[in-house]
Measured scan of single mutants.
Amino acid sequence: DEVEIEDFQYDEDSETYFYPCPCGDNFSITKEDLENGEDVATCPSCSLIIKVIYD
């Protein structure tokens, strides 16, 4: 799936974006990952991944 970065929750302390996963955990991707060109957020509890859409 693809999710807009605006739909993520941002945690300023950890500089990490979170998005709810269907399994009950959260996908996460850090601001640093995005700045380095990464665009895939992973869920630590299951095998799902999502593509992050940002400009």
Rank of each mutant, 00 (worst) to 15 (best):
E35T: 13
Y19L: 09
V52M: 11
E32D: 02
D55C: 10
L34R: 13
C43L: 00
D33F: 13
E4Y: 09
L34W: 09
G37N: 11
C43F: 00
E35S: 14
D13W: 03
I5H: 05
E6T: 07
F8H: 00
I50E: 07
Y17P: 00
C23D: 11
I29C: 03
K31C: 02
A41I: 01
Y10P: 01
S28N: 15
C21Y: 00
E38I: 05
D13T: 08
T42S: 09
E6G: 03
S45V: 12
S14V: 14
E6S: 07
F8M: 02
V52K: 01
V3S: 00
G24K: 10
Q9N: 06
E2M: 15
K31M: 02
Y10T: 05
L48G: 13
P44F: 05
P22A: 12
I5M: 07
C43H: 01
P44W: 04
D33Q: 13
K51P: 11
D25K: 07
Y54I: 09
E32F: 05
S14K: 13
I49H: 11
L48V: 09
C46I: 00
C46L: 00
V3Y: 09
F27P: 03
D25E: 15
A41L: 08
D55H: 02
F18E: 08
S28Y: 08
E35P: 03
P44L: 04
D33V: 11
K51N: 06
I53K: 12
Y54A: 09
S28D: 04
L48C: 04
T16K: 13
L34G: 09
Y17H: 05
D1V: 15
D39R: 12
T16W: 06
K51D: 08
P44G: 11
D7Q: 14
E2K: 14
C43G: 00
S45Y: 05
I53M: 11
D25T: 09
I53V: 08
F18A: 05
Y19R: 09
D1Y: 05
L34C: 06
P44K: 10
E32Y: 09
C43M: 00
E32T: 10
C23R: 12
E38S: 08
A41W: 01
V52P: 07
D1R: 15
D33H: 03
F18C: 06
D39C: 10
Y54K: 14
E35F: 08
N36K: 13
C46P: 00
I49F: 14
S28M: 15
D11Y: 09
L34T: 09
T42Y: 08
C21T: 00
I53G: 10
I53C: 04
S47T: 12
I5T: 01
E38C: 07
S28Q: 15
E2H: 15
L48Y: 02
K31Q: 03
D1H: 01
T42K: 13
C46E: 04
D33C: 11
N26F: 12
E38D: 03
D33E: 12
F8I: 03
N36T: 10
G37A: 14
S47G: 13
T42F: 14
S47I: 03
Q9P: 01
K51I: 10
E32S: 08
P20L: 12
E2R: 05
G24F: 02
D25V: 06
V40L: 04
E6C: 04
I29K: 11
E35H: 03
C43S: 01
D33L: 08
F27A: 07
Y10E: 04
S14Q: 15
P20Q: 02
D11S: 12
T16F: 08
I29G: 04
D13V: 09
C46Q: 01
C46N: 01
C46V: 00
T16N: 14
A41H: 06
N26M: 07
Y19M: 09
I29M: 06
C23I: 00
G37Q: 06
